[in-house]
Design a binder for these strands. Sequence first.
DNA 1: ATGGTGGTTGTACCA
Length: 262
Amino acid sequence: MRIATWNVNSIRSRIDRVEAFLTRVDIDVLAIQETKARDDQFPFERFTRLGYEVVQHGLNQWNGVAIASRVGLQDVCLGFDGMPGWGDPSAPEARAIGAVCAGVHVWSLYVPNGRTLEDPHMGYKLEWLAALAAAGRAWLAADPTAQIALLGDWNVAPFDEDVWSVEYYEGKTHTSPGERAAYQAVVDAGFADVVRPFHPGPGTYTYWDYTRLAFPKRRGMRIDFALCSPTLAARVTGAVIDREERKGKGASDHAPVVIEVR
DNA sequence: ATGGTGGTTGTACCA
């Protein structure tokens, strides 16, 4: 089984590329972030035509997450226990969706950006990751052999090797000690980065800014991760960061990350 | 020289 995560930066703008990717790489389950579409705008039929069921949680033009699966899609959750909301409680953010696909509990996660180190959104980001770590710890306490994949755009570069320039990111988001500790708390809850062993750094990135010719200059960040519970991690036989999808006109600023599960 | 690009929305905001 092949499971992937991809921040598409608008599903409506990217649907042709997503379709081609699903077919070319033979993907069974795709966790999507930044759909930027409400349910009435989401191109569900483009997925069903290819044999995928889709569930999405999208409320506005800034975020939105989805899971597409051709191996079943059950027990859908729009958010996890304890996930903090933001702003108007009647319009909560759409940053997490979970479902069981062929026995694997798949989560598509879009961790808050943080904006700047001083912005209230940074506090929200840290709270959000702490709540995720607590939820993950509780899931594994309830069932230590649970097969759980936490996939998505984490908006954290956990190690210095995960950014093109440590100096450039000093004083900026994604590399601060607080963010790295918040990410590490999820790892400490029992979830391992299953891609890094197959594609170690430095220089292995999943995101490149649209501006400043970042991609051709190889100025990227590794911020998209597949974190797996122990039982699922033991089934992972390979991984791919699909840099090809960052090339050419109409690319997302993120590349898909794919894991192979035996 | 706080630039550049891209998406959605609506002529600003977000990443």
